[in-house]
Design a protein around this nucleic acid. Structure first.
Lengths: 153, 153
DNA sequence: TAATTAGTTCTTTTATTGCAGAACCAAAAA
DNA sequence: TTTTTGGTTCTGCAATAAAAGAACTAATTA
């Protein structure tokens, strides 16, 4: 085994890790994803990940599985081997941006229901709220166009 | 005092509250912001908020102050009164979207540093990473245009 | 001057998260 | 058939976050 990382790589793994934590990912999962993004080696096994990051088996297992279900990483296998080789699926970004936009859809649905339920006594507030829901619809539509536009290029 | 909310309003406050929790806001702050968005009454005092939501003074105080610093709510005062009257600042949405885009900027800066540090042994991975950073720059620029475009309308 | 109002701040309690460590399991190898 | 490999799942502990409650404060009022 014996995987070596430069100090710079270690620093970047931590920095990128912290950023991902801010997006709600657990410390361990953030580090695993960082490792697979930063390290020269394109694929890591379960035990290699465990070793370089100094994690327990359970933490490694849970981190890998959350990353897999989020499609942040993938794995391949090799003929006649039972091990899995994990790699960063960085194409994930556009997809997770799209999922993000879908999250806004839920948000906006609720905002519209709130608007529908509001008293008619507050017309100026209500029309601001309405403008907001329209803006969100507009934004989501245009943002999707941006993404599709890029893909066509 | 004696503020009354319909069952539907209570339901919407909880639902909108949960959505906001998913964006990383504390339960109490989420409920306060929801209340000010959903309730007919356009302004609430500290004690009214405390009472309808059944929160302690400290929880109320902290929730209000985080919402104030995020500009999610505002308050006004009335001549000769010491109380503050809090209201939802729903114009916040566009601003927080812009702040969100700025968050991506930090993210992308780190991605570029990672790219710079990567081995030249993995050209296809590297070029994917590069495309990604370019896409992010493009997206941030275009998203800002969307927002400004709407505001001009 | 004492009491009330409108909060803030500090301390304690409770709930949640994140991880380690050990037990466990199924497939493959010895 | 026992052992090893490549994990997963369960139990428990430590750290952190959220909120309660009580003590505090600065203005205002009685």
């Amino acid at each position: 085994m014996d995987i070596k990382l430069t100090d710079r790589q270690k620093e970047l793994i931590e920095r990128y890790g912290v950023i991902q934590e801010q997006f709600g990912m657990s410390p361990a999962a953030s580090r695993v994803n960082s490792l697979l993004t930063v390290a020269d080696q394109p694929e890591f096994t379960f035990d290699e990940i465990r070793e370089v990051l100094g994690l327990s088996k359970s933490a490694t297992s849970n981190a890998i599985n959350t990353l897999l279900t989020m499609d942040y990483i993938g794995y391949r296998t090799k003929m006649g081997e039972r091990k899995r080789y994990f790699y960063s699926q960085l194409d994930q970004w556009k997809d997770s941006l799209k999922k993000n936009l879908n999250g806004f859809k839920e948000y906006n649905k609720t905002m519209k229901e709130i608007l529908n339920e509001r008293t008619s006594e507050t017309p100026s507030y209500n029309s601001k709220l309405e403008e907001l829901t329209q803006f969100m619809d507009y934004y989501m539509e245009e943002a999707n166009k941006i993404i599709n536009n890029w893909e066509k290029k």
